[in-house]
Amino acid sequence: MQRVNMIMAESPGLITICLLGYLLSAECTVFLDHENANKILNRPKRYNSGKLEEFVQGNLERECMEEKCSFEEAREVFENTERTTEFWKQYVDGDQCESNPCLNGGSCKDDINSYECWCPFGFEGKNCELDVTCNIKNGRCEQFCKNSADNKVVCSCTEGYRLAENQKSCEPAVPFPCGRVSVSQTSKLTRAETVFPDVDYVNSTEAETILDNITQSTQSFNDFTRVVGGEDAKPGQFPWQVVLNGKVDAFCGGSIVNEKWIVTAAHCVETGVKITVVAGEHNIEETEHTEQKRNVIRIIPHHNYNAAINKYNHDIALLELDEPLVLNSYVTPICIADKEYTNIFLKFGSGYVSGWGRVFHKGRSALVLQYLRVPLVDRATCLRSTKFTIYNNMFCAGFHEGGRDSCQGDSGGPHVTEVEGTSFLTGIISWGEECAMKGKYGIYTKVSRYVNWIKEKTKLT
């Protein structure tokens, strides 16, 4: 034993070699072989497995989906700052455009905790909710729209109204504003409101030439003092309507412009014939205590009207009353817009006519005020429907199939267009061939041609 100890002390290297040989010859039971080890760690190889990531292109799944990435790591994937920024906006807080917040056709661009709407022409605001041009839906104005110097929408209202708090709607500024039905039992019968379409306001006024200088022999019209197929109006439903009495009662109609003036057809009036105007009328054979009678003290036909040349060209006249009318729910003026808007309103496509005229061709006159909704007829169809001249200051309205029309005794009465609950004068009943005849239409004086003249002559002093 002493000898062994001496050998170990003198030859430590020998001992180490012996131990190493023993270990190498022993069977290893701690580690699995290569094949079995792979069965336990069965993990798919990654895209760049075996390579240094710093030297390969980034992978979106590896960089940002398996674990949260930084902007720089995302930049490695896209290799483009702009594309990385677009991805980053949604990656950080989701897609803010998912709810489609942009209105009126706006395009949404996502941002971090926010979004941006790219608005089409005519709109602005956070969600493109603000109209900035009158060309689109009248700028959301209830009545009139004008573009300011910086191309912003400025709404306005006709006389007797003021802008509401929203700067879009119009509200009454006087007790009985024009064009409004205020009798409670008839307010439910107000005709369907007309909503502004998209309009090209630059070209809204037709490029028409008034044929002022045409000389033409007097034409022989049949029954051209021209509501057939209409309905009984309720008291106060058309408070701007008046009836004219002269040699015979209810020979023509008219509309209240203001307390002192009536507008009617020029062919209705004769110099030297006494005319009485009755406002607030409903049943011409009954006294309903809503009527107001006034005498006409002055007749002003349009300066281009000449019955000797043509009885229905420039067929418009103004009547001055001896005493002002007292405005109330049964006696209310009709609204008159400017030339541009009167023309736009007419193009809405349908209007209402009213009167006490004959209820059928050569038949009896109506006792109760009649009204009828009539569609506008395109000019080409209008011209083809008659052998008589249709001037540019006239328009056609009615039904091709016949059966409904204005008729004798309705002449001078109103053709009105309702705009968001307020009625505007767009025409004056003038003439036609018979009444409600198939293929024939009622012919009306186009008020847009005469609004400046009306307003100039009827100013209240």
Rank of each mutant, 00 (worst) to 15 (best):
G229Q: 15
N213V: 08
I214S: 15
H361E: 11
R358V: 06
E434P: 15
Q143H: 14
C28A: 11
D93Y: 10
S217A: 09
Q408T: 15
K446T: 04
G236E: 04
S411R: 15
S148I: 08
A266F: 02
L60H: 03
K188M: 14
D378K: 07
Y305G: 02
E401P: 14
S423T: 08
Y450Q: 00
C435A: 04
G409E: 06
S411T: 15
F388D: 06
N245S: 09
E53A: 00
T209Q: 13
Q185A: 07
T287R: 07
K347V: 03
C69V: 00
C119P: 03
E53Y: 00
R62A: 04
E10I: 14
A173C: 06
D322K: 04
Y312E: 03
K247F: 08
F224M: 14
M394P: 01
A317K: 00
L372A: 14
T29K: 12
F31N: 11
F388V: 14
I428Y: 05
S182R: 10
T276K: 07
T458G: 03
N203W: 07
G427D: 01
R191E: 15
H314P: 02
N104I: 03
N135I: 10
G229S: 14
H267F: 02
T458A: 06
Y22K: 03
G179E: 01
W356I: 09
F221L: 13
C18E: 02
Y352E: 03
V195E: 12
R43S: 02
Y201F: 14
T342Q: 03
Y115C: 03
F78C: 03
F388N: 09
M65K: 08
G363K: 10
V368C: 05
S255A: 05
N295M: 08
E66R: 05
N222W: 07
L163T: 06
N166T: 04
S430E: 03
R226W: 07
G253S: 08
T417P: 00
I428M: 06
I40T: 02
Y444K: 00
N38T: 15
R226G: 13
V183H: 07
L321R: 00
I300K: 03
C119F: 02
L244G: 01
R180D: 02
R358N: 09
T85F: 07
S114K: 07
V227Q: 10
S25D: 09
G105K: 06
K109Q: 11
G94I: 12
V183P: 10
M6E: 07
G280P: 02
F424E: 01
T287Q: 14
C97F: 02
L425F: 03
P375W: 07
M65V: 10
T194V: 12
I275G: 03
G21K: 05
A9M: 08
S411D: 15
S182D: 07
W356D: 02
F71N: 03
V451R: 03
I112R: 14
N343R: 07
